[in-house]
């Protein structure tokens, strides 16, 4: 456990020892602000909730999370430190989990720093803070899912650009799998049950359900199991590369 913590601490501090963390946080806050207040028309709507704030999170994450995840393993491969890490007495699960949790905690920090939006809506009106809390939990879970996908893909290559692009594509498919853009492609030739399964993988569907204020166990299980599966795959990818 404390081995995982050591990996976690190193990785987490690693974000803040380079400009990456600050640039990411600034851009994230800037974009959430722009999308909420300008694109989403938060003031014009005149309603005391943060629906419009959360509405754009999947689309922001689609590009920002792969940017965080791409370096997780690709960078270690490129600089050779993966050889150091994997020859230290660290179980593979501790290395995978420690690095992943550090990246997740980092996105958590970025998300927390959006608190002025919450202050604003509470100053202006009388929102249901339970719904807002649910929104934050949902957003964090969804970020975790994007990150797990990115971590696994990052482990397959030493090239961060490839990791980024492939992650964006895979994340995009997961995001929109409930929308006509994907379903129309399948609807002509696949049975209804398969179609429903594909649609049920959509991040948007599950995320929207949570931001409506209802934390349904099914949505939480969806994100949690998705994270578990991708992290498991992450471990397998590293094991396979080891076998050469």
């Amino acid at each position: 456990m404390n081995r995982m913590l050591a990996v976690f601490r190193r990785e987490f501090m690693g974000y803040f020892s380079t400009p990456l963390a600050y640039i990411f946080i600034v851009i994230f806050l800037f974009l959430t602000g722009v999308t909420t207040f300008y694109v989403g028309g938060f003031f014009e709507a005149g309603q005391a909730h943060l629906q419009v704030f959360f509405l754009f999170h999947p689309w922001l994450y689609l590009f920002l999370i792969p940017a965080i995840a791409m370096r997780l393993w690709a960078d270690e491969r490129k600089s050779g430190t993966i050889e150091l890490l994997l020859t230290l007495p660290v179980p593979l699960w501790a290395a995978v989990l420690g690095k992943y949790l550090a990246a997740w905690a980092f996105t958590g920090v970025a998300l927390l720093l959006t608190f002025p939006v919450w202050l604003t809506v509470n100053y202006l009106g009388d929102p249901d803070n339970g719904v807002i809390l649910a929104g934050y939990i949902g957003s964090l879970l969804m970020a975790g899912a994007y990150l797990a996908i990115g971590a696994c893909i990052s482990a397959t290559t030493r090239n961060q650009v490839i990791a980024f692009v492939v992650t964006v594509v895979v994340c995009f498919l997961f995001t929109v799998s409930g929308l006509p853009i994907v379903l129309d492609f399948f609807s002509a030739w696949t049975p209804q049950t398969v179609l429903a399964t594909i649609a049920s993988f959509s991040f948007l569907t599950h995320f929207d359900a949570i931001t409506d204020g209802v934390i349904d166990l099914r949505d939480v299980v969806f994100f949690a199991s998705l994270i578990a599966v991708w992290l498991f795959a992450n471990g397998i990818v590293i094991e396979m590369k080891k076998a050469g």
Binding site: R10, S17, S79, G80, T81, E83
Partner: peptide
């Protein structure tokens, strides 16, 4: 290891 890798930051 070869090349003495270490975390550069």
């Amino acid at each position: 290891p070869e090349g003495a890798p270490a975390y550069p930051d």
